[in-house]
Structure formats: structure tokens, C-alpha cells
Design a protein around this nucleic acid. Structure first.
Length: 660
DNA sequence: ACACTCAGAC
């Protein structure tokens, strides 16, 4: 079960009550020199500007890949015509250029030509060919060349291992590494860098083993090996060990820093990622696209808008171009942190957009309940000839589901199949959600029965959620049973089912589900809400009485509650705490965490400013209603981030149109 | 004159 927005676990130090991002992070001045690291997607552009030396006084660098009218290569043609003599260096240069430009076809031409030349025994060129195939995304061909070599050296092994390592074929890379050792080759720092990358993808045990080999061979001081080690421990979630390796490195570069920062980002430790960003700059290292991308991702995962903006400021000052590599993450960060306007702005300013840029923009729209805009942008994307992928359709389907665009959603599901994209289980879940939310419960059930894939827990959860929404007790109970079989430890379905019973007045059944849940040791994730004020994060749990301002918060809410009642607010107590009487229920309800957060925001933020609150579970119906009234009462916009979407409350209504 | 480490959308 994946969520659109990562919930932040309680164990995260970022959620200590008040202190966060201490002020000194914000006094670091940005370094204005431009960093030069080019992102993979932009290499092509950079090469285009390159003009260089000549070969034998005849061929200029820019003519290396020049084509002949019949599709051959100009340089090879010259050789065939006897207009120039080849040599090993020329073959290497040609291959290298093919590699840089990712030109597999031309690479094959050079390869074939090389085989017919008198240089065909040169190991160095053969190694370059292996590298060319590997870098052009064809590890199979690299392997074939390698296998057919009568004689191999260290570089041959390293090149082919790297080929698999970089093409997400970690197991094969590790296998070759073993074979290499059996053949009596001792790995050097080049080999170990690649093998560590592969090991990191396979698992911690493998990673530690390779670490041992690095120590034995004395390569741990190499920056490449060191960075790979830091990265390996980061990916295994072992941040303490990553830090130990990092601290032990005599010579560091940006990559080491980035590997460490990325590790914290993957663990949603925004505070650590931001802190390291500052330390990196203080240590006089230039933040690169990798750095920014990681830090934005970290901010996105906890919705840290202010920190994200601050980092964005550094990016602007750095002079780095807003390329897709970093822009996509920035866009995503703004979307997830609640500022759809900034997300749009970033999208508009992207130098070049790839599929991920479009998908991120669609996701942002979908998360903010802008179904119409999502569909429009999707159509624009197609109009511009950008090929949508599976993720694109997931975004669009989700948007349709969240906005009640039933027919459009079903149409796009069919379109997806027509475009020969294979829907996976997540698409089926979304369609069940789409039908279910729209009240077509019978159709949703039918759809599940006819699915070609075996239904998973997520499928039944979607149906269960729809049953809760449309108060269908029988089907809901059935769906819940299926979930209990497949995913017995998730608290969500238990609570949904008990709420279904409760809202039908069947308190006894509701209590039975709760009891069953307790008996089987299923624990409910405690609900909490939080908000940022001036770089501090304030967190609240329901009925919280441990906050320093608890009395003021309580008074504020009581005051507000009275006023919104005058505007017509009627507390809805139907789905909570059925075992207490009506009056008590209402009292408890008042202290849902989002209401405490809202009262706190009203006390501590300037009049008229937008209030941004985040919550780790779905907002309840009563709070949703209350928030609408409050937005009208105080004349302010309130943005509430739910588990997987945003609610924009303004002037008494919500952007979700009460459909969520 | 050949080979290595760091990012992202669901």
C-alpha cells in the first residue's frame, strides 16, 4: 500500500513538540558561484556546444558522428574509401562519443567496423566497446562482447560489472564479481565502486561483505569507494554507519555529501537533510543538482514548505539551471507541501520537461483536488506528443476518482489499455476507488470479480472505503473480511468497519470490531496534526493537554465553536466514540488534533495569512465541516493536508466540494 | 587513451 504523501512516523525526531530547524540554519549565506555538474538528461545539450581538436588534420570533433546520406558514419566511410587511416585511438574516440550521446546504433556501426580492422585484437578498444554498450542501456551486448574476448584484463571485468550495476542488474553484477575473483583478479578502486553500488541494491549483508574486501585491499580512502560506501549504508538505512564512514574519509567531495544527504532524504529526515545541506556549504562544498534534488525530496516528504522555500532560494542564487533533474523534485515538493501555485510556477519555468515533470504536475493537481485541471494538462501533454506512461495514468485516474469524474476516469482506463500500457494492481485499485466513490458499489464489486489480477488487500480497502462513504454495511462487512484475511494487521480497515456499524447505530457490532482489533494486537496509528510557524513545527494529538498554551488553545476553540454555531455549524458526532453520551461525545470531538492545531494557528499567526495544517490520517467529517465555517468566520484560507490530498477551505467551502 | 560513487513522479 503506497500513499501519495508519506506519513511521518512518531519516532522521527522532527516531531518533537516544538524545537525544529534551529535558527542558525537560516543565517548561512548562499554561495553564488555556479556549480558545474551536469545532469544526465542534459549531457546531450552540453556536448552540442563542444568543439575540439582534429584527427589527422582531417576530422573535427563535431564531425565524429556525422552521417552519410545512406545512414552510415562519415568517418568510417572515409576509412573505407581509403581517404584516411584508422587507428585504435580513433575507434576509441568514436565509441566514446557514441557513449556520451547515448547513440547505440552508431556504436554498433563502429563496433562492426572495428572487428574488420587490423586493430580488432586491442583489448583497450574492446573494453571501450563494452562500456559503450553498457552506457547505452544494452548490458546484454556488453556481456556478449565480454564473453567473446579471448583475453581479458581488470578493465574488461570492471566495465562489464559496471554495465550491470548501472542498468539495475545488481545480482548479475555481483555474480560477475565473484567470477572475477575466482579468475584471480584482485579488484581495484574502480571495480569496488561499482560493486558496492550493486551490493547496496541487493542488501546489507552483501554490502558489508564488500566493505570488508575494501578494507582488506586498502581502498577505503578512495573518494569513489568512500562515497559508494556512504551510499551503501545510506540505502540500507544505516545512517549512523554511513556517518562513521563519511567522517573517516580524508578527502571528501560533493558526492560523499550528497550520498549522506540522500540517505536522510530517503528516511524522510528533513531536519537532518537540511542541516547537512548547511554544513556542506559551510565546509565550502558546492551544492549540486543531486544535493538540491535530495533536500527537496526530504522537504516534500514531511511537507516542510518554509524549509523547501529557503533551499529554493539557495538554488536560485547558485545559478544552476532549473533542469528537470532538480526541477521535478522542486515541483513535487511544492505540491506536497501545499503550494499548488508555486508548483505551477516551477513547471512553467522548467528549461526542459520530461515525463516525470508532467507526471509530477498532474500529481500536484490531483492532490489538490483539481480534477479538471489534471485532465486538461493531461490532454495538453498528449497534444504535445509526450508519451504518457503507467504513472501518468495512475495520476489521471486518481484525479478523476477524487473529483468524481466517473466517466472520464473509465474512459482513460480504456485509453491506457489501447495505448498498450499494462495496468498494474494500483490502476485496478484506483478504478475500484473511482467506481466506489461515485456510489457505484455494485459495479465496483463486479469489476473486482472480473479482474484478471488476483485482488489484493488494497483492492478490498478501496471498496471498504467506498462502503463507509456510502454507508453500505453488508458489502462493507464483506470487504472488511477480505482485508482481514489478506492484511490482518492494518488498523485502518478495522476502524472503517467499526465506523460503518457506528453510523448505523449498531454500537454492539462496532464495539466487537474494536475488541477484535485489540485482541489481535492491531494498533491504531495515533492521529496527529502539525503546522509550521517560523521554522518551528508544532504538533498536536487528540485531546492534547500537554501543550504550554493548552489553556489559550482551549479557550480559543470554545470561542470559535460558539461563533460558528451561530453561523449554522452543527457538530456531527455520528462516527466517533459511541460509548459515551451525546454531550460527552461533542466535547471529545472538539479536541480532534486538527482543531487544536487550527486554534493554535489562530492564536499565533498574523490575521489574513494562509493557515497550513497537516494531518497523518484522513480528516473526519465533523472537522471538515467546522473548518469550512471557520474559514468563513475569520476570512482566511486554510489548507489542510490529509493522508493523500489537500483541502483548501475558503469563504465557507472546500476545494474538494465535500467529495473526498 | 579503456573502467568507479550521488536525484526524481505512483
Amino acid at each position: 500500500m503506497k500513499r501519495h504523501i508519506t506519513n511521518t512516523p512518531f519516532s522521527n525526531p522532527i516531531f518533537k513538540r516544538i524545537i525544529f530547524f534551529s535558527p542558525h540554519f537560516f543565517s548561512t549565506s548562499a554561495n553564488s558561484a555556479a556549480a558545474s555538474s551536469a545532469a544526465a538528461s542534459d549531457i546531450e545539450e552540453d556536448i552540442g556546444a563542444f568543439t575540439g581538436s582534429t584527427f589527422g588534420g582531417i576530422i573535427q570533433d563535431k564531425d565524429l558522428l556525422r552521417k552519410t546520406p545512406n545512414g552510415g558514419l562519415y568517418v568510417l566511410d572515409l576509412i573505407d574509401k581509403g581517404a584516411m587511416d584508422p587507428n585504435a585511438t580513433l575507434y576509441n574516440q568514436l565509441l566514446k562519443r557514441c557513449t556520451q550521446m547515448g547513440r547505440l546504433k552508431e556504436g554498433r556501426l563502429v563496433h562492426a567496423h572495428f572487428l574488420n580492422s587490423i586493430y580488432c585484437k586491442y583489448i583497450a578498444v574492446q573494453n571501450t566497446i563494452i562500456n559503450m554498450y553498457a552506457k547505452c542501456g544494452s548490458p546484454e551486448e556488453a556481456r556478449k562482447v565480454f564473453d567473446e574476448m579471448p583475453e581479458r584484463d581488470m578493465v574488461s571485468w570492471t566495465a562489464v560489472i559496471t554495465g550491470f550495476s548501472q542498468n539495475d542488474r545488481a545480482q548479475e553484477a555481483l555474480g560477475l564479481f565473484l567470477e572475477m575473483s575466482r579468475n584471480g583478479f584482485v579488484p581495484n578502486e574502480f571495480t569496488l565502486g561499482s560493486v558496492l553500488k550493486a551490493a547496496a541494491a541487493v542488501g546489507e549483508i552483501e554490502g558489508r561483505q564488500i566493505h570488508g574486501i575494501c578494507l582488506k585491499n586498502g581502498h577505503c580512502d578512495d573518494v569513489y569507494v568512500g562515497s559508494a560506501l556512504v551510499d551503501m549504508y545510506s540505502r540500507c538505512g544505516r545512517m549512523e554507519e554511513a556517518k562513521v564512514v563519511f567522517d573517516g574519509l580524508d578527502s571528501k567531495n560533493e558526492v560523499c555529501w550528497n550520498a549522506l544527504i540522500a540517505g536522510h532524504a530517503r528516511k524522510s529526515e528533513a531536519e537532518n537533510a537540511v542541516r547537512l545541506f548547511s554544513e556542506m556549504k559551510k565546509a565550502d562544498f558546492e551544492a549540486t543538482h543531486f544535493t538540491y534534488s535530495s533536500v527537496f525530496a526530504a522537504c516534500a516528504s514531511v511537507g516542510a514548505l518554509e524549509q523547501g522555500k529557503w533551499i529554493h532560494g539557495h538554488l536560485v542564487k547558485s545559478g544552476l539551471k532549473l533542469i528537470a533533474f532538480v526541477g521535478n523534485t522542486l515541483l513535487d515538493m511544492y505540491g506536497k507541501a501545499g503550494s499548488i501555485e508555486d508548483a505551477r510556477r516551477v513547471f512553467d519555468r522548467l528549461v526542459k520537461r520530461d515525463v516525470v515533470s508532467w507526471n509530477s504536475m498532474l500529481t500536484a493537481c490531483a492532490q489538490h483536488g483539481l480534477g479538471g485541471e489534471t485532465v486538461e494538462r493531461f490532454e495538453e501533454m498528449r497534444g504535445r506528443g509526450i508519451q504518457p506512461n503507467e504513472v501518468t495514468f495512475l495520476c489521471v485516474l486518481t484525479a478523476c476518482s477524487h473529483s468524481g469524474l466517473l466517466d472520464k476516469g473509465l474512459y482513460y482506463f480504456e485509453l491506457m489499455k489501447k495505448l498498450k500500457l499494462e495496468p498494474d494492481i494500483s490502476h485496478y485499485v484506483t478504478v475500484v476507488d473511482l467506481l466506489g466513490r461515485a456510489g457505484q458499489l455494485a459495479r465496483a464489486e463486479e469489476f473486482i470479480k472480473e479482474m484478471q489480477i488476483k485482488p489484493t488487500a488494497a483492492i478490498w480497502k478501496a471498496l471498504l472505503g467506498a462502503c463507509r462513504m456510502h454507508k453500505n454495511m453488508d458489502l462493507g462487512a464483506y470487504a472488511a473480511e477480505r482485508v482481514f484475511e489478506l492484511d490482518p494487521y492494518d488498523s485502518g480497515p478495522h476502524i472503517l468497519l467499526s465506523n460503518i456499524y457506528a453510523s448505523a447505530g449498531r454500537w454492539r457490532d462496532a464495539a466487537k470490531v474494536r475488541k477484535m482489533m485489540n485482541d489481535s494486537g492491531v494498533r491504531k496509528e495515533p492521529a496527529c496534526s502539525w503546522l509550521e510557524i517560523e521554522n518551528n513545527v508544532h504538533m498536536f494529538v487528540a485531546n492534547d493537554d500537554g501543550h504550554p498554551q493548552r489553556n489559550e488553545i482551549r479557550r480559543m476553540w470554545e470561542n470559535v465553536a460558539d461563533k460558528i454555531r451561530e453561523l449554522g455549524y452543527v457538530p456531527d458526532t455520528s462516527h466517533v466514540l459511541w460509548f459515551v453520551d451525546q454531550q460527552e461525545r461533542e466535547v471529545r470531538l472538539q479536541y480532534h488534533s486538527e482543531k487544536l492545531a487550527l486554534a493554535f494557528a489562530l492564536l499565533n499567526t498574523p490575521h489574513g495569512s494562509t493557515i497550513r495544517i497537516k494531518k497523518n490520517i484522513r480528516v473526519c467529517g465533523d472537522c471538515h465541516t467546522a473548518f469550512k465555517f471557520v474559514s468563513r468566520l475569520v476570512g482566511r484560507e486554510i489548507i489542510l493536508r490529509d493522508t493523500n490530498r489537500f483541502h483548501h477551505f475558503r469563504g465557507g467551502s472546500c476545494s474538494c466540494g465535500d467529495y473526498w
